[in-house]
Design a protein around this nucleic acid. Structure first.
Lengths: 335, 335
DNA sequence: TTGTAGGCGTTATCAG
DNA sequence: CTGATAACGCCTACAA
């Protein structure tokens, strides 16, 4: 923990000259600067980020909001892999990332207050209850923010293209000859809304009508819920030929139920998932699913947010839409 | 961003009195303090963590080291769920967590330098190449550190009880009547070493000998590697009756291969995994596996590290061993 | 080209 | 009980 002052004393230059040299300022003698940097190196000097932040109002620290009221998104592969690529890119650009909490000294405060308290240069928001007024307050604050899979009028958003994705998935199933499509969907988020919308729109285009009881609510990432929904679908007098699941995890709950009914996939029942998690292509049969490009989502998120942080005046918010790609798998039967 | 100075002016007390009041110091009039706190509240004051950190040398920020040279542990459920519970507990105690990088201003520096630069109060180390000399440097520094699943002489470690776990798992399989046990193991980490050791020790105890070619190297979390190893085991003149896999993910690669050989699990071949990931109990057949208690590991890690941070003098390093528990599943046949 | 002085927001010491 | 003062480590006018 040698400081600028120490170096100053060691080499006989004033602290400001030392500071300037270390920061490669132009108004200091080339040789002096060189010499000073050498001494600094010798003494194992490195700057104290805290002191610098206090002075410059820049922490090079990005806050990430990653927690729902109930649990953290870290256990969802979709979110954890977004976080991973976000981190890699932020790292590359010299930023460090910190999980946002809602405390200051163990006292509950608003998210915005916490962020101001910690002086994050910017904030990335994902996997959160977007209806939370504290989140709204945050995105409409002066702090650069970026949201994932949700659009706010006041910040850039990175959106996985669920509209096109669900359309492609639905068309794929239809093209395989299926007409009796059932859909089990996740809780009422924006993403769910978009996917359902796209699903029904596509059915309409193809002039396909499905009965109301082919539409079942469940929860993302809760295989048991989808299992129960599957059971209900199987008990109908007229069964669907293909079931859409909220995500790949949930699909596995359904798969379980199908096996209990001695129904083989895809021969007796076709099923499709969503997300394209790692395991979806390891398991047999390989799951037919829409892969969300979490790598690009996280990377673009970091790029955009940092761009905004570093060019607060010229930066214009916009939406970035990230393509999804169909993993054909083997769980849809050609009829 | 109202500061203490602002409050001072607004209420006519000096900055120091204001500071003391806000920090509930004892040497300030009860009523004055109350009044000042009210004004602060009114003005929406909250402290600037940076300024405070500069003065107090405490950031209430814990650095986590979570990256191998190749990739981040975030995509491994074992690590991401440890991180999750660590985060929850750290949060509860008023700490925030930040991913450690190895840069300062985009310049490569050692991990220790980075940590000093960022002034983390403590550091948690998991999912890292423990042979990296930079890690060694870090744990033997003055910064409070804690390691997970690896023991350093200089810091507290939280250890998942792989010794007892592997023993129990092995005994379970033996007790089911198996004698021809094959084991596919992960890369040469400390954990792998312990597990293999425990495995062989248990076999010895039961006077069971297995041929060398029943022991296959693979990599953690790479189903394809285990799949290939499985293929090799199946091509042996005398096959094992049960195969141990490095982890549940890898087991799925093996499962794939078994299906290609039209071998049913567990009727034709028994298999066991490790970790007890969420999916292991969703898939059918349910996987027989050793569940690692990631929740406790993360929570205890945060407790211990913070304990150490807050009691640097009295704290004594020690090892915390966290029990594992067998998930019986359905992939081991009674012979 | 170099150095001086002030201040970022906070806390701690010490005097009144 | 209250307040003036200095300091944490760094940066940056501005002066020399």
């Amino acid at each position: 923990m040698t400081s600028i002052k120490d170096i100053s004393q060691a080499c006989g230059y004033s602290p400001s000259t030392v500071s300037k040299s270390l920061n490669y300022a132009t108004d200091v003698g080339k040789e002096t600067a060189e010499k000073i940097r050498n001494v600094a190196e010798q003494m194992g000097y490195f700057p104290n980020s805290i002191a610098r932040a206090l002075k410059t109002n820049r922490t090079f620290n990005i806050g990430v909001l990653f927690v729902d009221a109930t649990a953290s998104g870290l256990t969802h592969e979709f979110f954890s892999s977004i976080l991973n690529s976000f981190k890699v890119e932020a790292d590359r650009r010299g930023y460090v990332i910190t999980f946002i909490s809602n405390q200051i000294n163990r006292n509950r405060v608003s998210l915005l207050e916490h962020c101001r308290h910690r002086n994050y240069d910017g904030v990335m928001i994902a996997c959160v209850n977007f209806k939370n007024p504290e989140v709204a307050e945050l995105v409409s604050s002066e702090i650069p923010t970026l949201s994932i899979d949700y659009e706010f009028p006041t910040c850039t958003s990175i959106l996985s293209d669920n509209l096109a994705g669900m359309k492609e998935l639905t068309n794929y199933v239809i093209q395989k000859g299926h007409r009796k499509l059932a859909i089990i969907h996740g809780e009422g988020t924006e993403v769910t809304h978009i996917r359902l919308d796209s699903f029904f729109r596509t059915l309409n285009e193809k002039q396909i009508r499905i009965p109301k009881y082919f539409i079942k609510p469940a929860l993302y990432h809760e295989p048991l819920h989808s299992q129960i929904a599957t059971r209900e679908l199987l008990s109908l007098p007229e069964r669907p030929t293909c079931i859409f699941y909220p995500d790949d995890y949930s699909l596995l709950g359904g798969l379980d139920e199908l096996e209990q009914h001695h129904l083989k996939v895809p021969e007796d029942m076709s099923i499709v998932g969503y997300d394209g998690i790692f395991l979806s292509q390891i398991l047999r049969p390989r799951i037919t699913t829409m892969h969300q490009d979490t790598e690009t989502i996280g990377e673009r998120a970091a790029e955009e947010l940092i761009e905004q942080i570093e060019n607060p005046r010229t930066y214009k918010r916009h939406r970035v839409v990230v393509k999804q790609d169909l993993l054909e798998g083997e769980t849809v039967q050609q009829l």
